[in-house]
């Protein structure tokens, strides 16, 4: 499938100073909701430029895991580093905000700001968080909207956009902060089936540009095609990590085998 997104100039991927280390690293990460163990001693890493797809049954901890990366969820123990920086350490509020501003995050429910136009959604944080000049932020936002195929909708408010369009604006909004990595938390799960493709096309082109990505998704076609590695989760643990070919053709863990065979029915 070709998309207009692929004809647009590359996204700038931020240079980082900690090039030797993994982009995202979980080390013995554990989290509870009350007595329920949501994450159970997770150790894994997302390398630079790597695309990881996290899959597994509902309630297996995928969303919780991805939300710990920018500390939308706290953890009980373990360490988590992003680009070499500890996310869950004793950070001052300002330092945590700075760190979060460098982690692109795309939500299942888009969460565009409904009182702002598409363009204003994209330029708000570069201006207010990063102190970018309005004209510079605007030019860059227009390039990003163009990249996701929505430059014609710059003036539209979220309520005037379809779900797929809103999610593409949300991706542009995250990219505007020039993050070294992008996290996607079930980005297509709230979409009508015919809009899934346009969002996946944007994600595919980002991956092709070398963006580091961690995606929680049920789109197994996308996983098979774009992922460098699959993490299979159940009951708060990563049970299997494998390249997509190996995972889909020959899963090792019995739970993964059952999951994939259930998908096929």
């Amino acid at each position: 499938m070709t998309s207009d997104a692929e004809m647009i100039p590359d996204v700038k991927i931020a240079e980082t100073s900690n090039a030797g280390t993994a982009m995202i690293r979980f080390e013995n990460v554990t989290k509870y909701y009350g007595a329920y163990k949501a994450l159970d001693d997770v150790t894994a890493e997302v390398g630079r430029g790597e695309v990881v797809v996290v899959c597994g049954p509902s309630g297996s901890g995928k969303s919780t895991l991805i939300r710990t990366v920018n500390r939308l969820e706290e953890i009980a123990s373990g360490t988590l580093t992003f680009d070499g920086e500890s996310v869950h350490g004793p950070l001052k509020a300002a330092a945590l905000n700075r760190l979060r501003s460098r982690i692109g995050f795309v939500f299942q429910s888009f969460n565009l700001f409904p009182h702002l136009s598409a363009l204003d959604n994209v330029i708000l944080s570069p201006i207010k968080v990063n102190g970018a000049k309005r004209e510079v932020a605007k030019a860059r936002a227009m390039a990003l909207l163009d990249r996701v195929g929505l430059s014609a909708k710059a003036g539209a408010y979220p309520a005037q956009l379809s779900g797929g369009q809103q999610q593409r604006v949300a991706i542009a909004r995250a990219l505007a902060m020039e993050p070294p990595a992008m996290l996607f938390d079930e980005p297509t799960s709230a979409l009508d089936p015919e809009m899934v493709g346009e969002v996946l096309a944007v994600m595919r082109s980002l991956a092709a540009d070398g963006m580091t990505m961690m995606c929680v998704t049920h789109e197994m076609g996308f996983a098979r095609e774009v992922a460098d590695r699959i993490w299979f989760m159940d009951a708060g643990r990563i049970l299997e990590t494998a390249p997509p070919d190996a995972f889909f053709s020959n899963p090792q863990h019995p739970r993964a085998k059952k999951f994939l065979s259930d998908l096929r029915h």
């Binding site: 939308l72 979060r100 460098r102 995050f105 968080v129 909004r173």
Partner: peptide
């Protein structure tokens, strides 16, 4: 909706910035 505050935080806005903008 709570997702609005989460989106603001995820973009790096502080408490006051999230409220204001």
């Amino acid at each position: 909706p709570p997702g609005q505050a989460e989106a603001a935080r995820a973009l790096g806005h502080g408490f006051l910035g999230s409220l204001r903008y």
